[in-house]
Design a protein around this nucleic acid. Sequence first.
DNA 1: GGAGATTGTAATGCTATACAACAATCATCG
DNA 2: CGATGATTGTTGTATAGCATTACAATCTCC
Lengths: 164, 164
Amino acid sequence: MSTSRPSPARTSRGPRPASIARVPGIDYDVLDTLLGYALRRAQIAAFDQFYRATAGYGITPPRFTALVILGANPGVSQTALAAVLGIARSGAMQLTDWLVGRKLAERRARADDGRAWGLYLTRRGAALAAELKRRVRAQDARLGARLTAAERRALLRLLDRVAE
Amino acid sequence: MSTSRPSPARTSRGPRPASIARVPGIDYDVLDTLLGYALRRAQIAAFDQFYRATAGYGITPPRFTALVILGANPGVSQTALAAVLGIARSGAMQLTDWLVGRKLAERRARADDGRAWGLYLTRRGAALAAELKRRVRAQDARLGARLTAAERRALLRLLDRVAE
DNA sequence: GGAGATTGTAATGCTATACAACAATCATCG
DNA sequence: CGATGATTGTTGTATAGCATTACAATCTCC
C-alpha cells in the first residue's frame, strides 16, 4: 500500500461527534478552498446525524455497514467484509466477534472452503438491520434537507466521481 | 508519537487502507443511496491524497489544519484551536506539544491573559506550512481531477450546505 | 473582594486499527 | 499424488487519537 497514515480521525466510534462549528474571528486561509477539508466537515455532520439515528444501539458506521452487507450478501467471508469496509482482516474479525457476541450474526462452516466462515445475520440481526436502515435513511434525508432532490442526486454523483 | 511513519490508514485521517475499492459481487444495498456513505468513501479517497501529499512529514490532517490556522491567526489560544478542530482542549494541547516538540510552533505568554498561551509558528513552522500548503493544494486538485472547474465549485458549495 | 467561569495541564482509559506470526486449509502444478 | 505457495481466520502486540476527570492559576463580573 501506499504510504502510511496514522489514523483517521474520528471515523467510527465516538461518543459525541461534536459538530465543527465555524469559529468566528478565525481566518481559515486555504482550508476553505480544499475539497478535502469540505469533505471532512460534511462528514462530521454526517456522523452527527448517524449517531443521532442510532443512539442507544451501540452502533458505529462500520457496524452498520456490516449489518447491511451481511443482510444483502448472506454467507460472505470475513475477508470480503474486511475488503468492503476497507479495514484489515483482523479488524473484520473483531467486528464479527462483536456482532456474534450480541447474537446479531453467526458464523457457519462452509462446505466449499474449510478455512473460511460464512457470515449470516440472525433473525435478531435482520430485525435490527431493518430498523437501523429505516432510521439511518430518515436521518440521511435530514442531512440533505437543505438540498433539493436534484441537488442531492448531483452531490451523490459528484462524490462518487471523487471517490473514483 | 514517534515520528511519522509511513503507514497508510483511514478516515478522516487517513488511516487505513488507502482506498475503499468497490468489491465485485457484493450487493451494497441501501448504502449506495446514502449521502453519509458516499461522503465516507469520498473522504477516504481524500485522505489517501492527503497522505500521499504529506508522506514523510509525519503530518496528519489535524496537524496540517493546526499549521494553517496558526499561520493565518498568530497568537490564537489552544482553546480556540481546539474549537476549530472540533476536539477537546486536552487534545489541542497534545497536538500543540507535538508541534512545539518539533520546533514548528511556540507558545508565548500573553500580556492580556495570564492563563492562555498565544500560539505562533516558528520560522521553520512557517516554511513547512507553506510547503505543505503547496503540496496539499496540488493533491487536492488531483482529487477533483475528474471534475470540471464548475463541478468542483458546485461540489464545494453543496458540501458546505450539508455541513451547514 | 468573592463567586464563578475559563485556560492549560496531568493522569487515565478506551477504541479502533494496524501489523506480524501461525495453524489449518485450499489451489496449482509437476 | 505430492509439494509449494497462497489464503483464511486467529492471536498477540502496539499505537494513535481522542475523551474524561480533576486541578491550579487566572480572569470576570457583581
